[in-house]
Amino acid sequence: MPTNITLVQGDITEQDVDAVVNAANSSLLGGGGVDGAIHRKGGPDILAECRELRATQYGRGLPTGQAVATTAGRLPARWVIHTVGPVHQGAGSDPAPLASCYRESLRVADRLGARTVAFPAISTGAYRWPLEEAARVAVETVRAADTEVEEARFVLFDQRAYTAFAAQIG
Score class of each variant (00 low, 15 high):
residue 2 P to K: 12
residue 3 T to C: 14
residue 3 T to I: 04
residue 4 N to W: 03
residue 4 N to K: 14
residue 4 N to A: 10
residue 7 L to E: 11
residue 7 L to A: 03
residue 7 L to H: 04
residue 9 Q to H: 09
residue 10 G to I: 00
residue 12 I to E: 10
residue 12 I to L: 12
residue 13 T to C: 14
residue 14 E to P: 02
residue 17 V to E: 15
residue 17 V to H: 14
residue 20 V to N: 03
residue 22 N to G: 03
residue 22 N to C: 04
residue 24 A to S: 13
residue 24 A to M: 05
residue 25 N to E: 11
residue 25 N to M: 11
residue 25 N to I: 09
residue 27 S to F: 08
residue 27 S to L: 08
residue 28 L to I: 08
residue 29 L to H: 07
residue 33 G to S: 10
residue 34 V to W: 06
residue 35 D to H: 10
residue 35 D to E: 12
residue 36 G to H: 11
residue 37 A to L: 07
residue 37 A to K: 03
residue 40 R to V: 03
residue 42 G to Y: 05
residue 45 D to E: 15
residue 45 D to A: 15
residue 45 D to L: 15
residue 46 I to G: 11
residue 46 I to T: 05
residue 50 C to F: 08
residue 50 C to P: 11
residue 51 R to A: 07
residue 53 L to T: 04
residue 54 R to N: 14
residue 57 Q to N: 12
residue 58 Y to D: 05
residue 61 G to W: 06
residue 61 G to I: 03
residue 61 G to Q: 06
residue 62 L to C: 06
residue 62 L to A: 05
residue 63 P to L: 08
residue 63 P to R: 07
residue 63 P to N: 09
residue 64 T to Q: 14
residue 65 G to Q: 08
residue 66 Q to N: 14
residue 67 A to Y: 12
residue 68 V to Q: 12
residue 70 T to N: 14
residue 70 T to R: 09
residue 72 A to F: 09
residue 72 A to K: 06
residue 74 R to P: 07
residue 74 R to L: 12
residue 75 L to N: 10
residue 75 L to Q: 12
residue 77 A to G: 07
residue 77 A to T: 05
residue 78 R to S: 14
residue 80 V to F: 03
residue 80 V to S: 02
residue 82 H to Y: 11
residue 83 T to E: 04
residue 84 V to I: 04
residue 84 V to L: 06
residue 85 G to W: 00
residue 86 P to M: 08
residue 86 P to D: 08
residue 87 V to Y: 11
residue 88 H to F: 15
residue 90 G to F: 01
residue 91 A to H: 13
residue 91 A to N: 13
residue 91 A to V: 07
residue 92 G to Y: 02
residue 92 G to H: 02
residue 97 P to V: 06
residue 98 L to P: 00
residue 100 S to I: 04
residue 102 Y to V: 01
residue 104 E to V: 04
residue 105 S to G: 08
residue 105 S to P: 13
residue 105 S to K: 05
residue 106 L to S: 09
residue 107 R to Y: 09
residue 108 V to T: 10
residue 109 A to H: 09
residue 110 D to A: 03
residue 111 R to E: 15
residue 112 L to A: 04
residue 113 G to I: 02
residue 114 A to M: 05
residue 114 A to V: 01
residue 116 T to K: 01
residue 118 A to K: 02
residue 118 A to P: 01
residue 119 F to H: 00
residue 120 P to Q: 07
residue 122 I to A: 02
residue 122 I to H: 01
residue 122 I to Q: 02
residue 124 T to P: 13
residue 127 Y to F: 15
residue 128 R to D: 09
residue 128 R to M: 12
residue 130 P to L: 11
residue 131 L to H: 13
residue 133 E to G: 13
residue 135 A to H: 02
residue 135 A to S: 06
residue 136 R to L: 08
residue 136 R to N: 05
residue 137 V to E: 00
residue 138 A to I: 00
residue 138 A to G: 00
residue 138 A to P: 00
residue 145 A to P: 07
residue 146 D to A: 11
residue 146 D to C: 05
residue 146 D to Y: 06
residue 146 D to I: 05
residue 150 E to G: 12
residue 150 E to T: 05
residue 154 F to Q: 06
residue 155 V to L: 13
residue 156 L to S: 01
residue 156 L to Y: 01
residue 158 D to C: 05
residue 159 Q to D: 15
residue 160 R to A: 14
residue 162 Y to D: 08
residue 162 Y to F: 15
residue 164 A to F: 03
residue 165 F to S: 01
residue 165 F to C: 03
residue 165 F to M: 05
residue 166 A to N: 13
residue 167 A to E: 15
residue 167 A to T: 04
residue 169 I to H: 09
residue 169 I to V: 15
residue 169 I to A: 10
residue 169 I to D: 10
residue 170 G to T: 09
